[in-house]
Simulated assay, not measured.
Amino acid sequence: MILTLTPNPSVDHTLEVDDLVRGEVLRIRATRAQAGGKGVNVASALLRAGVDTRAILPVGGGGGAELTTLLGDLPRVTVPIGGETRGNVAVTEPDGTTTKLNAAGPTLSPAEIQALLRALTDEIAKGPDWVVASGSLPAGAPDDLYVRVAELAADHGVPLALDASGAPLRSAAEAGSVELLKPNLEELSDLVGRAPTTVGEVTDAAREVLAKGNGAALVTLGGHGALYVSAEDVLWARGPRVRTRSTVGAGDSALAGFLAHEGTPEERLRRAVAWGTAAVSLPGTTVPRPEDVTDDGVTSTTVPDPLWRIDEL
């Protein structure tokens, strides 16, 4: 059972256009509204794959009502808030280029933050296999919220996977106790204050973060695949080239794929890449179904050359 926490969920509106040109009147080819937020995406992908999951998220206002409807049969615990659940907009072009317009979201009061943590505590006490904490924090939430989440998970002996950015990611990474960090290359660069360009440099950067007391890192590299880095292993995998329709939520699907499957780190990495590859071939924030995911064409190695350039993978 995998429990997800999404402190700042959204209703994601996707607009498909032929070409995004500033200042012009554009014709929209297709639109869709979907439940969004990184933890929601992870839980949705797991549910589609038949994995037991539950999502925890705050909801409020008309946006919260719409989000609750869009969640469908996803098992969830919703925490009522006084603010309005945000709506995000993604504009996608035929070549997969995606322009995102993300709202800041509501401001949560200290009482609402405590209610969210109480809901999390109640669910962690039931003994999930993983807790996944994902995404940006709403206004009013302290930068160390994910540190508190890590402490709650550790108190109950439950491993934490964290997918965040900026100050919330930095605080949690510095505090340690995160079993699996899932930064992309930009987020890892921000953590260490430099931009790695080779496999060896990414490995060194990831291990610098792991040395704070964290377990392993799943570093997603966009179209260049992903690296799994632990104290013992450095593994790389990349999916086949596919037509990209939307990159929104691909990293969330990759994380879901990694956590959904048991096996060696290499086997889990290959599934993560397969799930992420399937996600980019789907519109909007659509998560893959089992029939969308295949290992065919996934390339992997347990000994990637440290001199390989990321942009050439």
Rank of each mutant, 00 (worst) to 15 (best):
G263E: 01
D311Q: 08
R48P: 06
L210Q: 09
T78F: 08
S253I: 09
D143K: 00
A237M: 00
W275A: 15
G82M: 07
G193S: 12
A103R: 13
L74W: 03
V234H: 01
A226H: 02
A256I: 07
P9A: 08
L145V: 05
H156M: 02
E24K: 14
V202S: 03
G96T: 06
S300F: 00
E123S: 12
D129W: 00
L162M: 04
G72L: 09
I310W: 00
I56L: 14
P110M: 06
G276A: 13
G127M: 00
D204E: 15
L74E: 13
E84N: 08
V273D: 15
M1S: 15
L46A: 11
L210K: 08
K126H: 06
Y228C: 10
V192W: 10
R245H: 09
E123L: 06
T14E: 13
T203D: 00
V40R: 02
Q34T: 15
G37A: 11
R207A: 02
R148K: 06
A278T: 03
P106H: 07
G60L: 12
N102L: 14
R170H: 11
L67M: 11
P240F: 03
L221V: 10
H13K: 14
A167P: 07
G83Q: 09
G83F: 11
V248N: 13
R148M: 04
D122W: 02
A217C: 13
E266I: 15
R245A: 14
E312G: 03
R245E: 04
D204K: 10
S10Q: 07
R27Q: 11
E151K: 06
L221K: 07
G87R: 15
R268S: 13
E16L: 13
A172S: 11
E151R: 08
L181S: 01
L235D: 12
E112Y: 10
S10V: 08
A161H: 02
L181Q: 02
V273P: 15
R243I: 06
L26H: 05
V158C: 08
P290T: 14
G157V: 08
T78V: 14
R27L: 09
P106S: 04
D204H: 10
P183F: 13
L218N: 11
T198N: 06
L227F: 02
G39W: 02
D252Y: 12
V11H: 11
L188C: 11
H156R: 12
V293D: 09
A119R: 05
E266D: 15
L191I: 05
L188S: 05
P80T: 05
L74G: 11
A164V: 09
A139S: 09
G127V: 04
P183D: 05
S134G: 07
V293F: 09
V199N: 00
V40K: 02
T99D: 14
I124D: 03
T299V: 14
P128H: 00
V178M: 03
S281C: 10
P142H: 07
G166M: 09
L26W: 06
N41I: 08
P128L: 00
P183A: 08
N8Y: 11
V298M: 05
L67R: 13
V59P: 03
R309K: 09
G193Q: 10
G284D: 09
D143N: 10
T277K: 15
P7R: 08
N88K: 10
S230W: 01
V11I: 13
G39L: 06
P142L: 05
V91H: 11
T4H: 04
V132H: 04
A237K: 00
E291W: 06
N41K: 10
V178N: 03
